[in-house]
Design a binder for these strands. Structure first.
Lengths: 127, 127, 127, 127
DNA sequence: GTGGTCTAGACCACT
DNA sequence: GTGGTCTAGACCACA
């Protein structure tokens, strides 16, 4: 299944980062499966109306992370995820993300309770 | 009460942004009170070992946002926060932070439940 | 349509403020339209013979005020002004300007009538 | 008759300038008459809760403009205004003030008409 | 190419 | 002493 890529210029998040996140999200949720082929760099660049280098940078970074595999002359594919991260690593990653966002929220005066409530409201409507 | 400013050069967050966040946090948590004087730009610059302009930039941005008030030749002070952000604005801000947090976490395959659990574990032990 | 930027070093008004005012004026009068790209910071700096940082400072302040939007690596653009200042804010701004104008004029012994007359003489011949 | 000095820290106008303007205004409106004695620098500084140098600077500048006269050991007085400015000079001064404020107003998108209307509303309630 | 951040150091205005 | 502005020049991140 293809991804319906969408870029938000106002988010402040760099385009290449948004592309990375959406591909990772696709893999995590099963929209993209092992071995599946991705759009060519050129095709995706045209579709998203961004520079070729921007898509290229996103693919390159995902390759480094072993999420994608490039076959010269054939295309780019979702990697075989035998490169699973360990449970501990996984927990550390989550902790890191939480810490960062808590500190940002705190700087605007939000409490942990408020953040949890906000998240709970989204538990239902999530795809 | 003074703030114990700390800069993390490795975080990738610009220095002036870190200063802004720490002051906002101080105001939000009550460490800094209305009318209180902040360190002089020069003093803080020396303390943090950054350039005067960097501190100045942070103070200036907070002044535009009505968080600080400066009086040339006198100093910089916590503003009279009658210019509180509206409840609606506040809610939008929180929603924005949560959305970004969610999308990044999701791209690594974490569920909302996992994220809420991670946050709940911090409700007690927060400084 | 481009702006014919001009800086007056003798005015006492900081350079970055003059740049801000001219852009605001351009937006207000329709010389600059939504989405239009502004000169690059470097180009404008060269044109005005000021430092890059000076232009940057002006652009940044206008970005905070939602007058401009910048996209790293792409350029700086006139923002979508759905964030129009409210009518009330606008009226307050005008009142503030008038009050200052009045108090200065009055301190030199001019009456309101004289000031109104002076302004009326300019209603026709304004560019 | 004494002046009821008032300083507004938020106006952005320097304190010494506010003092100058209020004295000039007093002279222009007849609240202060030729030969009348002003508060001592020290007294006014205490009254306004500002630094001695600030009042001192204001008096000094008014002396230069011949609005005040200082008699060593006696005090500061309203000068004998035989130093009247010519009609032409007066007109030029007014024109200068008008030009400056028009340009500021214009940068916020206000028209001359709006400024005139705003001024007209104050014709009645002026002391 | 674009904008963003930072430094070192200067000079000015205000209190 | 305070904050404000500006320069010259460097390096980084993004498209």
């Amino acid at each position: 299944m293809m991804i319906d890529f969408k870029l938000d210029p106002k988010s402040g998040v760099p385009f290449y980062r948004q592309i990375i996140d959406q591909i990772r999200y696709g893999v995590a949720t099963g929209s993209l499966n092992v071995g599946e082929q991705l759009p060519t760099v050129r095709a995706l660049a045209v579709q998203l109306k961004v520079n070729l280098n921007t898509v290229s940078k996103a693919y390159r970074e995902l390759e480094i992370q072993k999420v994608l595999e490039t076959q010269q002359g054939t295309g780019t594919f979702i990697g075989s995820l035998d490169v699973q991260i360990s449970l501990e690593e996984r927990q550390n990653k989550l902790a890191g993300i939480c810490t960062e966002y808590l500190s940002i929220a705190a700087s605007y005066g939000f409490s942990i309770d408020e953040m949890i409530n906000e998240l709970k409201q989204r538990q239902g409507g999530d795809k």
